[in-house]
Nucleic acid binder design. Structure first.
Length: 1109
RNA sequence: GGGCGGAUAGCUCAGCGGUAGAGCGUCGCCCUUACAAGGCGAGGGUCACAGGUUCAAUCCCUGUUCCGCCCACCA
C-alpha cells in the first residue's frame, strides 16, 4: 500500500489525561469499515489461523473469555503485523443442554409450561428465537475488547454448513463401524433426563454411610452381611458376590440368598475381580443395572439386569411396594423396613465420591439404556501418536502427560443426548419392520436397526418401507465442536479456505477443556483431514477472583469484563466489588484489561485477577499517553522523514535509547515467539516506563530545549522513531491507544493503520554497547546525587553543588561533556569535574564507579542522615565483600570454579574494598569532632575546596542556630556535643562568607520554603509559600522565579512561628523525634540483620544496572 | 488410589546453579512547565522444612509438611 503522509491537521494536541472510552469506540468501527480483519484464502502471504473457541450463543462473556480473546488477538495482530495472512475465525456454540435449560427455565417462569407442552417443533422455534435475540451479545463484547476477528466468516455450530459436516462425519464413522448403537450402562442425569458422557460427570468427595445389611441364606439360618452405600439399589440386586478364596464364606458360592423386602431369590457367586475380601464384610450385593462395577460383573456371570429406577430416578414398577418413591425416599423407607425386620446390622460413616451432573449438579444415576457411541480407541491412537511425534505440541508441555494418560485410558464416547436442541441424529427407524414395545406399541429403540443417512431416506433399506422416523436424540455438543477447525472452513466441501488454513496454526483455550474439546478435535481432524488440526495447543490458566476462588454466580464474585472496560454503576456490581467501589466501577479501558490479562499469563496456574492490577495498567496507558503528549508538544513542525535514523548526528542519550529499544525489540519478539506473553508485556512496560520515560525523556530535554537546532531536530527524530516502534511493539497488547497515538505522529506511515503496518524488526546496527557503557557514569552520578538529596529530604527545587572527582580522564571528559544531563536530573546548581584532589570539607559523598561525588553540606544536607547513609553503604559493601572473600578463601572454589567466575569475584573484591575505604574516609570527615573543626572553604568559585585544618571555628555553629528557620529543630535537637547538633539535625556549616557565595542563599530559600509547606498541613500551603522565600537569598537566579517570593525576611522570622500551623514542628517532628532515639538501638539491630543486603539494592540502581548490561 | 502444579518482599507473582526482581502496598520529600493515573528517594526477603549432589543451591536430587487441581466403575 501507499505511504500516507502526515498532515498537520492530524496533530491535534492530546488531552492531558487518556480517555479510553472515546478512543476505543472510535477505532474498532474504523478498522471494521476498512476490512482490516478480513483474511483471504487466496493470499500469497504465509497463513496463520486460529479458530476462536466458540462460546455458548446465549451466554455472555466472562473473564475467561476475555483472556482467550486477549491472547488470541495478541497472536493474530502480531502475526498480521509480521506479514502473515492472519485469520481468526469467530463463532458460537449451540451448547445443547445449557441452552435448552435456559429456555426451558424461561418458559416455565413466564408461561408455566414445559417443553413437552409446546412440543418439539414449537420449542425449537423458541430456542432459535432466543438465540437470535441474545446471540449477538458475544459479538458485541468481543468488539469492545478489540478482538480482530474476521466477522465475515462467523459461524454457528448449527449453521447449515456446519450441520452438513456433522452429518457427514456421523455417517462416515457409522459406515466405518466407529459409531454404533447399543444398550449399555451409561451416566444419566435424573433431572435433565439425558445421557451424559463420562466427562460431563463431576465427582465430588462426600461423607456418606456404609450400611451393613443381612441377607438370609436360603435353606439355612445363616445370614450374609453385605455392605452398601446405596441400600435402595437392593431392589435391583441379582446376585451376591464373595471372594473365591475367602475362608469365611467357603462353600457358599452356588447357593442362594433371599433378598430381604422383596423375597426374591438370588444366587451367591464367587468373583475375585469385584470382591476385595478386606473391604467391608467381604460380601458384595450385585446390582448390574445400577452400578458400573456390578454391570461388568453381571456381564461376566450372565446375570439378569434388573432396572428398578425410571428416568427421574424414582423406583419403577419393579420396586413393588416402593414403586413411585424417589430414590432417596426409597432409601429411607427401605432402611426403616430393614431395621424393623432386624436386618440392618449397622451403619458406619463412609467417604465416597459422588458423581454430579455438570449442568445441574443432580447426582448422576447409572442407567441401562440404548445410546449411540463412538468407538474411540481407533481414533485415539493416531491422536496419541501425533503428539508423541511432536506434530502437535502442547504448551505448557506439562499437559502432554495428562493428555496421554487420558487418551490411553479412554472409554467409548456416549454421544447421544435425550434433548431437543442440537444436531438430531441422522438415523431413521422403520415403522414397518422395527420391533415394538409391548407396553406402548411404539418402536423399541433398543432393538431397532437404524437407517443411517446424510439425508432423510426415502425408504427403509431393510424392508423398503417408507414410514421412517428419525431418531429423536441429538448429538453431544462437543461432537460438532470437535469438527470446528475444519467445519468452519467449509468442509466437507474442498474449499480454498480449507486448503489455505488447515491445519490451523494454534489452538488457544483453557486447560479445562483439554479432553472435552482439544482431544476430540485431534481425533476428528486426524481422521477426516489426515492431518493434525493445529500445530500448537496453548492452554491457558483459569481466571479466578483475587482470592483465588472460582468465579461463580452463587459465590457472587463474578466480574463482568465489560464492567472493567466500560465501568459500571454500583448497583450492577457484585457485593465484593460494591464494597470496593461504592461509587461504581470506573472505566479502565480494554487496553488496560488486555494488558493485565497478558501480564498475568503464566504457565499452568490459576490467574488471580486483581482490579488494582488493572488500575496499574490503566496508569501505564496514561503514561504512554503522556509521554507521547510530551513528544508532540515538543516537535514543533518537525516531521520524521525516511532517512535512516543512524545517519543523524546523535547525542549520547539518543544512541543509548536506540540501543535499549533494540534490545527491547528483540526481547519482545523472543517472548512472543515462545508464548511468554507476560514476559513480553513486562519487557515493554519496563522499557517504556523505566527507560524511555524515566531517563530518555528527561535527558532529551537538554537538547529539545537547547539552542542547537540540529541537535534538537535529531532528538525529535529519535523521539518519534522510538515512539513509533514502541507503539507498534505494544499494539498487539493495547490496540486502541497505540493506534490513536500512532496516527498523530508526524512521520510518513507505511500504512494507514498501525494494525497493518510491520511489527518492528530487530536492527542490530542500533545496538550501541559504547553508548550504554558511556551512560553508565552519567546515570551512576545522577543516582548517587539523587540518593544524597533524597536521604536529606531536599525538595526538588533546592539546587545543590556537586564536585565530581575521577581519576579517569575519559570519565571526566564524559561527565563534562554531558553536564547538560547531570545538572537538571540531579538538581544541580553547579557542577565541578576534576581529578582526585583535596576533598571539599564537610560534604556528603557518593562513591561510584571510578568517581567520587561530593556535595557540600552548606546549609541543606542533613549531616546526621548523611552519616547514616554512609554507614549503611559501608555495611552493605562489607557484607558483600565478606561473602565473596569467604568464597575466595576456599581453595576448592579457586581451583574448580570457572576462571572467569573467580576473576570476576576478585575484581569485585578489589572494587568493593576501594569503595569501602573511600566511604570510611568520607564518614570520618563527617565525624562530629572533625566537623566542628572544619571550615568550608569552597566558597563561590573555589572549586578545590580544601580540607581545612582544624581550626575551631564555631561560627558555623552559630550560624546554624541563626539559620533561621531551619529550625524548629532546635527544640528537639537531642544533645549537642561541642556545640554541634548530634541528633538528626539539618546542620549546616554556613560560614558568613557563604552568604555571599552562590548557592547558599538558594538552599536557604529552599529550606525555608519547605518548612512552611509541610505536608502536615495538607490543605493550605498557600500562606506558607509566601513566607518561604525571603531570607538572605536575594538575587540568586538559581531560584526559580516563581518561588522566589517577595521580599523581606520578615516572613522568615515568621517561620519559627510555623509550629503553629502544625507543620513539621508539631506533626512530623514529633514522630521523628520518637524515631530518633529509637533509631539507634534499632539500627544496631538492623545492621546485623542487614548483612545480606548487597550494595546495589536500590531499585533504581538495579534497574539501570540492568539497563546497562 | 493414581497423576500434575504450587510454596520467593505485607499482597499478587517473575527468576530456576555463581548469595534475589517487578507491580501494587508502605515510609520520606515534592503539584519540577508530558503525566499527582505523576516525580525522586527509602525500607522490606534464613527464596516452606530436612537431608543430598556441587567449588557454589532459591534454582538440581530425595524426603517431609501444607495448599490447589485433574483423573479413577473405592461395595
Amino acid at each position: 500500500m501507499g505511504r500516507f503522509s502526515f498532515s498537520k491537521s492530524d496533530t491535534t494536541e492530546l488531552p492531558k489525561a487518556y480517555d479510553p472510552q472515546e478512543v476505543e469506540a472510535r477505532w474498532y468501527a474504523r478498522w471494521m469499515e476498512r476490512n482490516y480483519f478480513r483474511a483471504e484464502a487466496t493470499s500469497d502471504k504465509p497463513s496463520f489461523c486460529i479458530v476462536l473457541p466458540p462460546p455458548n450463543v446465549t451466554g455472555s462473556l466472562h473473564l475467561g473469555h476475555a483472556l482467550t480473546a486477549t491472547i488470541q488477538d495478541i497472536l493474530i495482530r502480531w502475526k498480521r503485523m509480521n506479514g502473515f495472512n492472519a485469520l481468526w475465525v469467530p463463532g458460537t456454540d449451540h451448547a445443547g443442554i445449557a441452552t435448552q435449560m435456559v429456555v426451558e427455565r424461561e418458559l416455565k417462569e413466564k408461561e408455566k409450561k414445559s417443553r413437552h407442552d409446546l412440543g418439539r417443533e414449537k420449542f425449537l422455534e423458541r430456542v432459535w428465537e432466543w438465540k437470535n435475540k441474545y446471540g449477538n451479545r458475544i459479538r458485541e463484547q468481543h468488539k469492545v475488547l478489540g478482538a480482530s476477528l474476521d466477522w465475515s466468516r462467523e459461524r454457528f455450530t448449527m449453521d447449515p454448513g456446519v450441520s452438513a459436516a456433522v452429518r457427514e462425519v456421523f455417517v462416515r464413522l457409522y459406515e466405518e463401524g466407529l459409531i454404533y448403537r447399543a444398550q449399555k450402562l451409561i451416566n444419566w442425569c435424573p433431572s435433565c433426563h439425558t445421557a451424559l458422557s463420562d466427562l460431563e460427570v463431576e465427582h465430588e468427595e462426600k461423607q456418606g454411610s456404609l450400611w451393613h445389611i443381612q441377607y438370609p441364606v436360603k435353606g439355612s439360618d445363616r445370614k450374609l452381611t453385605v455392605a452398601t452405600t446405596r441400600p435402595e439399589t437392593m431392589l435391583g440386586d441379582t446376585a451376591v458376590a464373595i471372594h473365591p478364596e475367602d475362608e469365611r464364606y467357603k462353600g457358599l458360592a452356588g447357593q442362594s440368598v433371599v433378598l430381604p423386602l422383596t423375597g426374591r431369590e438370588i444366587p451367591i457367586i464367587a468373583d475375585a475381580e469385584l470382591v476385595d475380601p478386606a473391604f467391608g464384610t467381604g460380601v458384595v450385593k450385585v446390582t448390574p443395572a445400577h452400578d458400573f462395577n456390578d454391570y461388568q460383573t453381571g456381564l461376566r456371570h450372565h446375570l439378569p439386569m434388573l432396572n428398578v429406577l425410571d428416568e427421574a430416578a424414582r423406583v419403577n414398577a419393579e420396586g413393588g411396594a416402593y414403586a413411585g418413591l424417589d430414590r432417596y425416599a426409597a432409601r429411607k423407607k427401605i432402611l426403616e423396613d430393614l431395621t424393623a425386620q432386624g436386618l440392618l446390622e449397622k451403619e458406619e460413616p463412609h467417604k465416597l465420591s459422588v458423581g454430579g451432573c455438570q449442568r445441574c449438579a443432580t447426582v448422576v444415576e447409572p442407567r441401562l439404556s440404548p445410546q449411540w457411541f463412538v468407538k474411540i480407541e481407533p481414533l485415539a491412537r493416531p491422536a496419541i501418536e501425533a503428539v508423541e511425534q511432536g506434530r502437535t505440541k502442547l504448551i505448557p508441555e506439562s499437559w502432554t502427560n495428562t493428555y496421554f494418560h487420558w487418551m490411553r485410558n479412554i472409554h467409548d464416547w456416549t454421544i447421544s443426548r435425550q434433548l431437543w436442541w442440537g444436531h438430531q441424529i441422522p438415523a431413521w427407524y422403520c415403522a414397518d419392520c422395527s420391533p415394538r414395545l409391548e407396553a406402548t406399541g411404539g418402536i423399541d429403540y433398543s432393538r431397532a436397526e437404524p437407517n443411517v443417512s446424510r439425508t432423510p431416506p426415502e425408504k427403509c433399506s431393510r424392508c423398503g418401507g417408507s414410514r421412517l422416523e428419525q431418531d429423536p436424540d441429538v448429538l453431544d455438543t462437543w461432537f460438532s465442536s470437535g469438527l470446528w477447525p475444519f467445519s468452519t472452513l467449509g468442509w466437507p466441501e474442498q474449499t480454498p479456505e480449507l486448503k489455505t488454513f488447515y491445519p490451523n496454526s494454534v489452538m488457544e483455550t483453557g486447560h479445562d477443556i483439554l479432553f472435552f474439546w482439544v482431544a476430540r478435535m485431534m481425533m476428528f481432524g486426524l481422521h477426516f483431514m489426515k492431518d493434525v488440526p493445529f500445530r500448537t495447543v496453548y492452554l491457558h490458566a483459569m481466571v479466578r477472583d483475587e482470592k483465588g476462588e472460582k468465579m461463580s454466580k452463587t459465590k457472587g464474585n463474578v466480574i463482568d469484563p465489560l464492567d472493567i472496560v466500560l465501568g459500571a454503576p454500583a448497583e450492577q456490581l457484585n457485593k465484593n466489588l460494591r464494597n470496593k467501589f461504592p461509587q461504581g466501577m470506573p472505566p479502565h479501558g480494554a487496553d488496560a484489561l488486555r494488558f493485565t490479562l497478558a501480564s498475568l499469563t503464566q504457565q499452568g496456574r490459576d490467574i488471580k485477577l486483581s482490579l488494582d492490577r488493572v488500575a496499574g495498567y490503566k496508569a501505564f496507558a496514561n503514561k504512554l499517553w503522556n509521554a507521547s503528549r510530551f513528544a508532540l508538544m515538543n516537535l514543533g513542525d518537525f516531521t520524521l522523514d525516511d532517512r535512516s535514523i543512524k545517519e543523524r548526528e546523535l547525542t549520547l542519550a539518543d544512541r543509548w535509547i536506540l540501543s535499549r529499544l533494540q534490545r527491547a525489540t528483540v526481547e519482545t519478539r523472543n517472548a512472543l515467539e515462545a508464548y511468554n506473553f507476560g514476559e513480553a508485556a513486562s519487557t515493554l512496560y519496563q522499557f517504556l516506563w523505566a527507560e524511555f520515560c524515566d531517563w530518555y525523556i528527561e535527558l532529551a530535554k537538554s537538547s529539545l530545549y537547547g539552542e542547537d537546532a540540529r541537535a534538537r531536530d535529531n532528538t525529535r527524530a529519535v523521539l518519534v522513531f522510538c515512539l513509533d516502534r514502541i507503539l507498534r511493539l505494544l499494539h498487539p497488547f493495547m490496540p486502541f491507544i497505540t493506534e490513536e497515538i500512532w496516527q498523530k505522529l508526524p512521520m510518513s506511515r507505511p500504512a494507514d493503520s498501525i494494525m497493518i503496518s510491520p511489527f518492528p524488526e530487530p536492527d542490530a546496527s542500533l545496538e550501541d554497547a559504547a553508548a550504554e557503557a558511556e551512560m553508565g557514569p552519567v546515570i551512576a552520578a545522577i543516582e548517587g546525587l539523587r540518593n544524597i538529596r533524597g536521604e536529606s529530604n531536599l525538595p526538588p527545587s533546592a539546587r545543590i553543588t556537586a564536585y565530581v572527582q575521577s581519576p579517569d580522564a575519559r570519565t571526566r571528559e564524559l561527565l563534562e561533556r554531558w553536564r547538560g544531563y547531570l545538572m537538571p536530573l540531579a538538581g544541580l546548581g553547579e557542577l565541578r569535574v576534576t581529578a582526585p584532589g583535596p576533598k571539599p570539607a564537610l560534604s556528603a559523598a557518593f562513591v561510584g564507579p571510578r568517581m567520587e561525588v561530593f556535595v557540600p553540606l552548606a546549609g541543606l544536607i542533613d549531616v546526621d542522615a548523611e552519616r547514616e547513609r554512609l554507614r549503611k553503604e559501608i555495611t552493605r559493601s562489607e557484607q558483600e565483600v565478606g561473602g565473596i572473600k569467604r568464597k575466595l578463601d576456599n581453595p576448592n572454589f579457586v581451583a574448580k570454579a570457572p576462571p572467569d567466575v573467580v576473576e570476576k569475584d576478585r575484581a569485585r573484591v578489589e572494587e568493593l574494598e576501594a569503595r569501602i575505604s573511600k566511604l570510611r574516609d568520607n564518614l570520618n570527615r563527617l565525624a562530629p569532632e572533625a566537623a566542628t573543626r572544619e571550615v568550608i572553604k569552597a566558597e563561590a568559585g573555589t572549586v578545590e575546596a580544601e580540607v581545612v585544618e582544624t581550626e575551631d571555628d564555631d561560627e558555623d555553629v552559630h550560624e546554624i542556630g541563626g539559620v533561621e528557620a531551619e529550625e524548629e529543630q532546635a527544640p528537639e535537637k537531642p544533645e549537642r556535643k561541642g556545640g554541634i547538633a548530634k541528633g538528626a539535625v539539618k546542620t549546616q556549616a554556613a560560614p558568613k562568607a557563604r552568604a555571599t557565595s552562590a548557592k547558599a542563599p538558594v538552599e536557604k530559600a529552599a529550606a525555608a520554603k519547605k518548612a512552611p509547606a509541610r505536608k502536615a498541613a495538607p490543605a493550605k500551603k498557600a500562606p506558607a509559600k509566601k513566607a518561604a522565600p525571603a531570607s538572605k537569598a536575594p538575587a540568586k537566579k538559581a531560584v526559580p522565579v516563581k518561588k522566589a517570593a517577595p521580599t523581606s525576611k520578615a516572613p522568615v522570622k515568621k517561620t519559627p512561628a510555623k509550629k503553629a500551623p502544625g507543620k513539621k514542628a508539631a506533626a512530623k517532628k514529633a514522630p521523628a523525634k520518637a524515631k530518633v532515639p529509637a533509631r539507634s538501638p534499632a539500627k544496631a539491630k538492623v545492621k546485623p540483620a542487614a548483612r545480606k543486603a548487597p550494595a546495589r539494592k536500590k531499585p533504581s540502581a538495579s534497574r539501570v544496572a540492568k539497563a546497562r548490561r
